[in-house]
Simulated scan of single mutants.
Amino acid sequence: MFGVDAGRYVIVAAVTSAIVWGLRRTRLGTRKIQAREATAADMRREMFQSLRSIGVYIVMALLLLWAFGGAGIYQFEGSYGFGADMALLAATIVAHDTYFYWAHRTMHHPKLFKYFHRAHHRSVTPTAWAIYSFAIPEAVVMFAFIPLWLTIVSVPIWVMFMWANFQLIRNAMGHAGFELHPRWWLSSPLTRWINTTTHHDLHHSGGFNTNYGLYFTWWDRLMGTEHPRYAERFAEVVADRSSSPAPAAAAPEGEKAPVPA
């Protein structure tokens, strides 16, 4: 189980990193969001913490398997039909985004941050390797969505597997440090509610108490926690500067995430 989950993590992080490495050597290279470069030490820490989190997930999963007599919470191996399964996948994604927003925002409380979330925020300039770069208590909180959701809704195994891969890829994109979405993304009513890389990067680099959402901007907009310069910053990052190359974009001036070393 650990090998499978660790393998998925390494593949997604490595492929995302390779895509970013390649794009930075094209005319799109100015889409790097921060001027600062993540160091080798940053990436080693992100890898170690992510692999440790996967270990926590496996222990939690085994405890659930034991508690449910071997059948575990994954007892529905069938299907409701393709259309119904896709609706369940969409519902799982929306539910997870809601869970993530409130759990994430709660872990930013001053009395909880040090123990739950500070380890993740050591990545001021995150990379795709930071997908699961959590402290152990945060890893437990992140895993808890699965048994909570499956207690409420009976979701087929293959649908949960699709969701697990979806959240892994979107997490890697959010931490890539390079804007991967097209410049029209925030101008279209069909896509502007879906988070971009810039959205989460601002949370790490300057908007410490903003942009808590994982997949969507709904909760941040509703609760007034979206970074006030998000749209402006996105426009700066995706601007076509190929005719006059400029240095890599820096974080918003005067903003710095208050993260202890």
Rank of each mutant, 00 (worst) to 15 (best):
M160G: 10
M160H: 08
M160V: 02
F161H: 03
M162F: 05
M162D: 04
W163D: 07
W163R: 13
W163Y: 15
A164W: 04
A164K: 06
F166K: 03
F166R: 02
F166C: 04
F166W: 10
Q167F: 08
Q167G: 11
R170D: 04
R170K: 12
A172K: 12
M173F: 13
M173G: 11
G174Q: 14
G174P: 06
H175A: 14
A176C: 12
A176Q: 08
G177N: 10
G177M: 11
G177C: 11
E179F: 09
H181P: 00
P182N: 07
R183T: 11
R183W: 11
W185T: 03
W185L: 04
W185E: 03
W185R: 04
L186E: 02
L186Y: 03
S188F: 01
P189A: 02
P189I: 00
T191N: 04
T191F: 05
R192E: 06
W193C: 00
I194R: 02
I194M: 07
I194N: 02
N195M: 02
N195R: 01
H200L: 13
H200S: 10
H200C: 11
D201W: 14
H203N: 05
H203M: 12
H203S: 05
H204G: 01
H204V: 13
G206C: 09
G206L: 02
G206S: 09
G207I: 13
G207Q: 09
F208G: 08
N209K: 15
N209S: 14
T210A: 15
T210E: 14
N211R: 04
G213M: 00
G213D: 08
G213R: 00
F216V: 06
F216Y: 08
F216D: 03
T217F: 00
T217Q: 01
W218V: 07
W218I: 04
W219P: 01
W219M: 06
W219F: 08
D220G: 05
D220S: 10
L222C: 03
L222M: 14
L222Y: 11
M223D: 06
M223I: 07
M223H: 12
G224P: 06
T225R: 04
T225L: 01
T225A: 05
E226Y: 10
E226G: 09
Y230H: 12
A231H: 13
A231N: 08
A231M: 07
A231T: 06
A231K: 07
R233A: 05
R233N: 14
R233C: 07
R233F: 14
F234A: 01
F234M: 02
A235V: 07
E236H: 10
E236D: 13
V237I: 14
V238S: 08
V238P: 10
A239L: 09
A239W: 08
R241G: 09
S242D: 09
S243Y: 12
S243P: 03
S244C: 12
P245A: 13
P247T: 11
P247I: 12
A248I: 08
A248T: 14
A248Q: 15
P252D: 11
P252M: 06
P252L: 09
G254E: 15
G254Y: 15
E255G: 12
E255S: 14
A257N: 15
A257S: 15
P258T: 06
P258Q: 02
